[in-house]
Simulated assay, not measured.
Amino acid sequence: MTKAEVDKVEGAEMETKAPPLRPRDAATLLLLDRQGDEFRVLMGRRHSSHVFMPGKFVFPGGRTDPSDGRIPVADGLLPEEEAKLTLRASRATPTRARAIALSAIRETYEEAGLLIGNRGAFATSRPDWQGFAENGVMPSLRGLRFVARAITPPGRVRRFDTRFLAAWRDDVAVELPQGGPTNELEELVWLPLEEARQADVPAITRTILGEVQERLADDPGLHPGGPVPFYRMLNHRFVRDLL
């Protein structure tokens, strides 16, 4: 797609004509649940009062906090996944890759009340990780799979270098009945992948859902080290590479 075509598709979702901005690291999590031959994904509707993409269905996620990389974990990233996250084009060191992965887990707790990890003692002074300490969950990165990457095109008011990670519902140690502590998502639903693609989702979310759907058709177990589509703008065209 050309830049003009991307702008047209995303025009209702994102403000344009902003000064040049360097993309910020962000992470989002596709939490998957398999029922027979059908795969479902957890999605939440952004609060209608939000300025950025109000009312859209999205995956839990947000901006990466570099200090997340210092949180202790039960298990680190699998070597195959760390290698993909730290490819030269990503500018990510192992420490940065760890922070990106942990931010996806933290955001899933904050927005959906789902704590990914292993049951066991956990302590930290970080206030945004106290839910894990209070519920006896040590975060674990072992089950995460890097499934896609996308950089917001230039000219947007907000630009992110987003890594899309996937995990299974079985990786969740605790589900808080009251949900997460933030008010980011006002409705959480488990949707079949095809139904999720037809929902009111951002254009890139629909694209990533299609990518994951195709990968699951070939690799239902999401084995580590699989191909990772990478979307970005080059020479005024939106391109897709494989990492």
Rank of each mutant, 00 (worst) to 15 (best):
K56D: 03
G179N: 10
A26F: 04
R98V: 01
R163S: 14
W190S: 03
P153K: 06
Y109C: 04
F238K: 12
W129D: 02
L165I: 00
P229Q: 05
L234W: 03
T93F: 07
A167M: 01
L185E: 07
D128Y: 08
D218F: 08
F122R: 00
I116C: 00
R119C: 01
P177C: 04
P60C: 08
S140R: 01
K17F: 13
G131Y: 02
E186N: 14
V137E: 09
T16N: 12
A112H: 08
T64L: 05
T16P: 01
R145V: 03
P229K: 06
G44M: 03
E194D: 15
S67Y: 11
S90K: 14
E175I: 08
A148I: 05
L21Y: 09
I100V: 15
F52S: 10
V174I: 12
L216T: 08
L193F: 07
P139A: 03
W129F: 15
E186I: 08
A217N: 05
R159S: 11
E134S: 12
T108Q: 11
A4K: 13
V189L: 12
L185N: 07
D128S: 13
A104D: 08
E110L: 15
P154T: 05
N235H: 12
T182A: 13
H236F: 10
P153T: 07
R91W: 11
A112K: 06
E38T: 15
F59Q: 07
E80K: 01
R88S: 15
R232N: 10
L85T: 08
A173Q: 02
L42P: 10
R145H: 06
R159Y: 07
G179M: 11
P79Y: 00
M138P: 01
A167I: 02
A101K: 04
R22W: 08
V147M: 02
E82S: 02
P127N: 01
R206F: 03
E214F: 00
N135H: 15
R237H: 14
V189E: 14
D7H: 13
R149L: 04
L30D: 03
V239M: 11
A18Q: 07
G62M: 06
R149W: 08
Q178A: 14
A27H: 08
G210V: 06
F39L: 09
R96A: 14
D68E: 11
E82N: 03
P19Q: 10
E211M: 11
F160C: 07
P153F: 07
N135Y: 01
G117Y: 00
R119S: 12
T16F: 10
P60F: 03
L209P: 12
